[in-house]
Amino acid sequence: MKQTKNILIVGVGGQGVLLASELLSAVAVEAGLDAKKSEVHGMAQRGGVVSSHVRIGEKVYSPLIPKGEADVILAFEEAEALRWSFFLKPKGTMVVNQYKLVPPIASMKGFDYPQDPVKSIQTKIDRTVLVDAEQIARELGNIRLVNTILLGVVSRFLDIDEAVWKKVIRERVPKGTETLNIEAFSRGRRIS
């Protein structure tokens, strides 16, 4: 991987954004690359917006991705995909989990959840990959697999050996769920 790859992972507090970026950086380090990851904790636990910057390359300086420089955005939620779309490179890829989380504030005057976030994203961004990770997770019989499925999708856009991914996943997921997680990863990796 000659050039630094920038991956922005976004979603809502509690969705597992930080776990996903943790695993992604572990994969990079396992592959012998330099990696930096940055996020701000604090209010995240209380239903706030969460974003995590991951940068992977031979040598990485800034832990923050400059605006308009993300190669891939992985959005766990549709409105969040829209919120962060300006971070994407002109030819970058937006991976959107087809899932809506409407905040309570939407019931107050003047605050509306976007009409059709996916449609707005598709009109703005050429390369959009839609994933119904909940549906796949349900098919596999465990809703907790959403995270691994989405990482599987992202893995296709990074030049890191599949075996490295699988090794790290095996090491990091709860005991007994290794096989299921590997299957979830492979399902995600096949989506284009």
């Binding site: 706030g48 917006v49 308009g68 779309s85 002109p90 504030i105 605050f111 961004i125």
Partner: peptide, 18 residues
């Protein structure tokens, strides 16, 4: 100027009581 998507005003998610 890079051809990136314009930034959008999307509904805020202020922290609230759990």
């Amino acid at each position: 100027k890079k051809q990136t998507a314009p930034s959008e005003k999307v509904i805020p998610r202020p922290p609230i009581f759990c």
